[in-house]
Amino acid sequence: MIRFLAGRVAQAVLLLIVVSAGVFALAALAPGDYFAALRSDPRVDPAAIETLRTRYGLDRPVEVRYGVWLAGAVRGDFGVSLAYNMPVTELLAPRVGKSLALASAAWALGWVSALVLALGAALRPGGLIDKLTSWLVSTLLVLPELLLASVLVLVAARTGILRLGGFGLALLTLAPGVVPVLLRHARAALKEAAEATFVEAARARGIAGRRLWVMYIFPAAANPLISLFGMSFAGVLSASLVVEAVTGWPGIGPLFLDSIAGRDFYVVTVVTLLMAALLAAGNLAADAMLYALDPRLRTPQ
């Protein structure tokens, strides 16, 4: 177990390094840099912009810039935001908490409702809960998220029940995107397991009721669900970045989108790393759970 975990942690560190290199490479590929915006001001001479680029090292080759950044990052210096002229970590620190709060709330809400409803549906196929969840999934899935978001924002503006830029509005906008995806997968996994051949076989042997569920169906359904569990948080977080920007929740979302558009790439790099780290952590947790639950996984093929 420890060897397994240590190996995976090493992989995660490698992942972060690859991701950071990837961001630098991609950023170098995207045309224009932070100072390009100055070019639309008729009073600023292009020569002055070139000097600014030199000053911030934007004219250096990307591998040199990456080397400098990596050397700094190892010591805890993740670079300076070009727009805000302050260290990225200092810029992000107050906002990360806001984003995590929103994403965790939506994630928890999504999982609890998905599991409860999916179980209800699977216990009595064709029953009220089954129909209800199927209807809920279909409705929420076919509603374009963007439309839903703008309708909610409009309602918030009109009625004043939800405050624009408030937590309630952001959560209410994020949840409908998260719940049906989880619900649908949970339903499918439980259904799949309940109808699997070995469950049929168990049924044929007279195993039924709680024993059938606990011993056969849950373990079979657990596998895809645990995989989903691990990667879903990072998914929710990245969805939340967009929702934050639409609803005005002051997390890293608006800043991240601004930074991408503004080519403030140290900010982009660090936010991306943060997401990658969460993703790796989620997957690691999921794999550890699978490893712990399923003894067969421990024997190498």
Partner: peptide, 26 residues
């Protein structure tokens, strides 16, 4: 084109046929 990509293309690389711009003198 995305704003900065367009500025880069038009004003630095000069790789375009025609462009629509807006300028506001300060």
């Amino acid at each position: 084109l995305e704003f900065r990509a367009m500025l880069d293309r038009v004003m630095r690389a000069h790789r375009f046929d025609a462009a629509i711009f807006g300028l506001a003198s300060g």
